[in-house]
Design a protein around this nucleic acid. Structure first.
Lengths: 257, 257
DNA sequence: CGAGTGCTTGAGGGAAGTCAAGATTGGTGG
DNA sequence: CCACCAATCTTGACTTCCCTCAAGCACTCG
């Protein structure tokens, strides 16, 4: 019960930002999510403000953007990487209650404090508004508000779908469900010419411990289920981080629902 | 694993509506949620349309308003009673992924089909728009859209908070968390003169099986935990449905987070 | 090359699930 | 009004799945 993967030390973001290979921010016109993120409905001038001098600014893996219960003054769009939303009990158990992928928004308009810890799972690129600035944009641009409402309605559906995973699925089904979600995301992202592939290879954005925290399992159970799925031929590994899913359909079958 | 509380037969709503004690709908001007529901920002004329000739129309307990995956043409505000949102696996396991209380909205604008089954847990009173009508109201009334966005942002926070319950809490903590939620709701509702009480008595809106489905437990485990909490003096029963919580604070302590 | 981090695997235990039997309650019809 | 039936709830005995604790391996980075 008093288990879990306690908060890790947070690296020095400033130092990280100085590292050569990540110094460059992503400009709007080559932004990978410019057509599907909130920017697609943002007036040109507001978009410039959103990116606020540092289009797609880089944040190191493991950086805590906001603590649970703490003030959060920014609303951001994820341009690249994965962000974790984490809730904890007083005795240190923690649960990842959401993941934000590119084009998703993190931050909470109309509320002073964050309901959960917001922490980068990978190196991340963000575009940010101040919360008040974002609220002003919402009030002045009906299209933006409608976009946000639709996005949040989708987010609720996804959160509720995950409640079925946490409440009723076996360890094997949970792990398969997560892999399926990542595999489908990957398949969709590479459906350039023609249809989406059924055989995909991708890098896991989370450690075993993080996957446990997302799935309501321990890291050992996650590891065991990976081995089981590997032995059953449903997945294979290059190394611990790179997975191949030869048949998304077969994986979906194991995932349950 | 292949457990769970299968769908019950749905009573004849028409017959039910004919019953004497429930024939009367609730008119707007005595509506218990007129100041806090979406009606508080709805123009007078739209409000009349929302209630559409049958202000606070009555629906029998156990009625399925929409099936998982089926078309849902209405968006409704709960005036009285409790509505369950249920997701299922193919083999019949089910999870209540949300409860809608008075002033909450049920239904999904901007989507044809419902992501989950929507079913009344108690006798319920509703006000409804057609989905298309509701979308029009949203487009034409920025205040309404803003109200909806804020409501949905709160709903996401609540759904995420519940993910911590499902992913990381023990059976005892889960049951205590549910009781705490209901007790706090009750305390808030009767804080007429002065402050909210710390000792409350209320009727459980769900059966043991339904509570199990909400908490990711079996009905037997829910029952056992009730007995345990009773023996510990944290709750007491009039009968199986009426609970007294003598100290909300003590219950909150057991609930964890 | 040693320390740190992340991952895997094994052995054992415990919390919750499953199966089963009764008790209680509430609704219905005689 | 009472008797019966179905639904709901409680409790017990047993089982199982996942957690806990522990050891060891692989890879990366000073």
């Amino acid at each position: 019960m008093a288990n879990q993967n306690l908060p890790q030390i947070q690296p020095d973001a400033a130092a990280w930002l100085g590292r050569a290979q990540v110094a460059d921010a992503i400009p709007c016109d080559t932004c990978p999510v410019r057509d599907i993120s909130i920017c697609s409905v943002l007036p040109r001038q507001k978009r410039a403000e959103f990116a606020s001098g540092s289009h797609g600014r880089r944040i190191a893996k493991g950086t805590v953007i906001a603590d649970e219960g703490a003030t959060m003054t920014q609303v951001s769009s994820v341009v690249d990487g994965v962000v974790k939303l984490i809730k904890s009990t007083s005795d240190g158990r923690q649960q990842i209650v959401g993941l934000a992928f590119p084009a998703d928004l993190v931050g909470r308009p109309f509320a002073e404090n964050s309901e959960f810890r917001v922490e980068t799972a990978t190196d991340v690129a963000l575009c940010s508004f101040s919360r008040s600035g974002f609220e002003r944009v919402l009030a002045e641009n009906p299209d933006v508000e409608k976009f946000m409402l639709k996005a949040k309605l989708d987010e609720i559906d996804k959160a509720r779908a995950w409640m079925l995973v946490l409440g009723r699925k076996s360890a094997e089904e949970r792990v398969a469900t997560l892999l399926l979600m990542l595999a489908e995301r990957e398949a969709k992202s590479i459906r350039h010419e023609g249809r989406a592939p059924t055989d995909v290879t991708f890098e896991l954005p989370l450690t075993r411990a993080e996957m446990g925290d997302y799935l309501g399992l321990t890291l050992e159970t996650v590891s065991r289920q990976f081995s089981k799925l590997r032995d059953a031929g449903l997945i294979s590994f290059e190394d611990h981080r790179d997975v191949r899913v030869p048949s998304i359909a077969r994986l979906a079958h194991v995932a349950g629902d």
